[in-house]
Design a binder for these strands. Structure first.
Lengths: 142, 142
DNA sequence: CCTAATACCTGTAGTAACTATAGCTTCAAG
DNA sequence: CTTGAAGCTATAGTTACTACAGGTATTAGG
């Protein structure tokens, strides 16, 4: 089956420009073109795009994806490396969940303490002004 | 007390350039300078920076922060709006936790299914190739 | 008082991972 | 045969910083 870039995008779950972007940065190789210079996608290239989108949705970086794709092209090798990447990802996901859970608690506290008063004594403003009480320097969850 | 930009950065928990960046985009106003043109920070400007960093760490965008800062400058007003921003944030945090939890499960499944075999039958690669079984189109958790 | 090491200054460019725009061409339907 | 949608390229914008280059200020030691 052949697909236009629009169909490929719908199938893979991304925008047309995203696919062109992936091609541009060399994450996927250029596909065939029609006489009129339009890209033609095979099942295989569409599923490669789906792989990428799925990995991205799982939080893998494009760099991770690049590694995994090159590994996936050597089917005879052991999948140790891919496993390692996935394990690292799991670590990060766990960290992020832990961080977000503590943020959730903090936000809930702030909200419940601020029962529609004046800003002058708003607990949210106070809580945010005052960094003392929280000793971890919780950095932005990139 | 007066602080150099370096001290302010250490206190607020960010890099020197980040402070200059906040000034540049007008998130904080320009502070006084020494005879030698170096920025001088008061306690108040440092705590404003700390406010920003703390809010950022809680996942508020710079745009949220901008709103909150302008609201915080009108202490006589009700804190309804700030409360609303915080509630919205809480919603997002909850969504993100939900998403990450399902990713965690998926990653764990993949990892346990891939017990050091060959890539040709690696479950991780298979799971990522195959988008069918997951019906939500879980977008990247920005 | 001089020097060397820091810390500061401005301005610009780079990062990730897209997203959007402009201005054009191609294609499919009626 | 025309019209509107979808495709093409190239370029610029987004968020929130971070890094660099090339220069000036400040401070501690000798």
């Amino acid at each position: 089956m052949n697909f236009s870039i629009g169909e490929a995008a719908r199938t893979a779950g991304c925008k047309v420009q995203t696919i062109r972007y992936y091609e541009q940065i060399g994450l996927v190789s250029a596909v065939a073109r029609t006489a009129g210079n339009q890209r033609v996608y095979s099942d295989e290239s569409v599923s490669r795009l789906a792989f990428i989108r799925h990995a991205r949705a799982l939080g893998f970086s494009l760099d991770d994806v690049r590694q995994m794709l090159s590994l996936a092209d050597k089917p005879a090798q052991s999948c140790e490396d891919i496993d390692a990447i996935a394990r690292e990802r799991l670590q990060e996901v766990n960290n992020r969940i832990r961080l977000l859970t503590s943020l959730k608690t903090e936000l809930e506290h702030m909200i419940s303490a601020c029962a529609g008063g004046k800003i002058a004594d708003c607990r949210i403003v106070q809580a945010l002004s005052d960094h003392e009480h929280c000793d971890d320097d919780h950095l932005p969850a990139t």
